[in-house]
Design a protein around this nucleic acid. Structure first.
Lengths: 258, 258
DNA sequence: TCAACTCGTTCATTATGCGAACATACGTTA
DNA sequence: TAACGTATGTTCGCATAATGAACGAGTTGA
């Protein structure tokens, strides 16, 4: 079984249990005991013990031979959300921004090689997948990701780029590390990122960095629009000023909070 | 240590590990080793092993002597969200509804004695706390909760009410089980709930049930508004028709999905 | 300087979690 | 109807994963 090498402090059963939770997903909303054993690499008996423990704790529900996650699992993610103040601070500003420009607006942070959405005000559905707090996308293919990469210092950026193998999701996706490095320089220079159908056809997105008092980039905020509405230059002209204004207000509130 | 009694299938280490995650929250965004030991009832050595395992897995970050959750924890909640189709189906309808009435709109489900938000389109901030997917409130004090209780069969409702001890959060909160039972009958009769400052002063909310093909109530959808804008009757007049329309569209899409 | 509190580490111990094996159930196919 | 393949539930001996007491070191505030 592909467990991590044992160290003195490592609790293997916790790691295994968490892997049972993440075995569920969009293509696997309900799983049998044997399904879970297969996808996690656990023995059937072990998978059964973890599933029944999760049932006891209220995180999983058993229906016949099939198991499903319950909404209680959201409490785990919520523990993170309720412990960080930035999404709460940003929320009203994203709401105002979305109301003003009539486009969806979101905030995300970098986590590994992905951006993770931590706040979102959807207006009208543009993308084929629904986006929620918790949704992740590869950083290189998103405007917020490129902004967050631009906010890394050179060493951290090079560490991020090392071994990165961008997978194209459209024909516009940046597929070389050198192209991405060049884009990051451009974003650093101009202070925002505009991504035009690099993640998904039909989607254009503009993002700017949110700094803390120390000047460190702690999050990115975007607005996203349909690529077919207007051209990139018109998108930039119309959306950048209100985006930067919302970011400035978020930074202002952030600098006043504890 | 207040662990559950051991059963053959119970994995105590998983339960303990999950309790470490949920030790973090709005008043405890960062915790020391000893803090975690105290709040979970674990020994310091055990708390340390669980924390370091969560650090290894990327769910927690250590900064000096303090630990914090990382955004990766959102993946646990996201496993649930991505495994249920209803929030994704509802999302565009909630966006249209919020756009039309210029009020926040949400969807929630019942989990234990709480409602849990599973979709949200915020417009303007009314409440003092920010609401996210994963936020929970006591069912009795919310319009969506009262709708979900009304959707329970009589046995399930009585089971829910058994031992319920409603805590008033405003002077309008229903504080007796009998008052709540009466309200549930009213909601069953009229097909919606209107809650006026029962959860929080200044907040009025209207909710309706979402049924699946079998006729079972599977979720509730609301719109919420500031109590000071107009009276309850005007709120009902203005918001109920678009709310019921959005719910009908969600039910229609739901009946067509696999 | 000292008390109080914290964390890191060690290691003997044992309770936990394991999984092989067996039995039973169910659906499919010949 | 019977055989087969795949599933789940259960048991229990046992290996080891996880435990926690004890010790030492570091930090902080009075």
């Amino acid at each position: 079984m592909a467990d991590q090498p044992r160290e003195d402090h490592y609790v293997q059963s916790l790691a295994r249990g968490l892997s049972v939770i993440t075995a569920f997903g969009p293509t696997t909303p309900e799983l049998s005991l044997s399904d879970v054993a297969r996808s996690t690499g656990l023995t059937r008996a072990a998978a059964r013990r973890f599933l029944l423990t999760l049932v006891d704790l209220g995180y999983v529900r058993q229906e016949g031979k099939l198991f499903r996650l319950t909404p209680r699992v959201l409490a785990l993610g919520y523990a993170f959300l309720s412990s960080v103040s930035l999404p709460g601070i940003a929320g009203p500003h994203l709401e105002r921004l979305a109301g003003e420009v009539h486009e969806s607006s979101s905030m995300s942070v970098l986590d590994g090689r992905d951006v993770v959405y931590v706040a979102r005000v959807p207006t009208s559905r543009i993308m084929t997948v629904s986006i929620n707090v918790g949704t992740r996308f590869p950083a290189y293919a998103t405007s917020m990701g490129q902004v967050l990469l631009a906010g890394l210092d050179d060493d951290a950026l090079e560490e991020h780029l090392a071994g990165l193998d961008p997978v194209p999701t459209t024909e516009h996706t940046l597929t070389s590390v050198e192209a991405l490095r060049s884009r990051v320089r451009q974003v650093r220079s101009q202070g925002f990122a505009l991504v035009d159908q690099e993640l998904e056809y039909g989607l254009r997105s503009l993002a700017a960095p949110v700094h803390n008092r120390a000047g460190t980039v702690v999050a990115a905020v975007n607005v996203s629009t349909q690529a077919s509405r207007v051209g990139p230059e018109e998108t930039r002209r119309a959306l950048l000023p209100p985006l930067l204004k919302a970011v400035a207000e978020i930074e202002n509130d952030l600098s006043r909070s504890p």
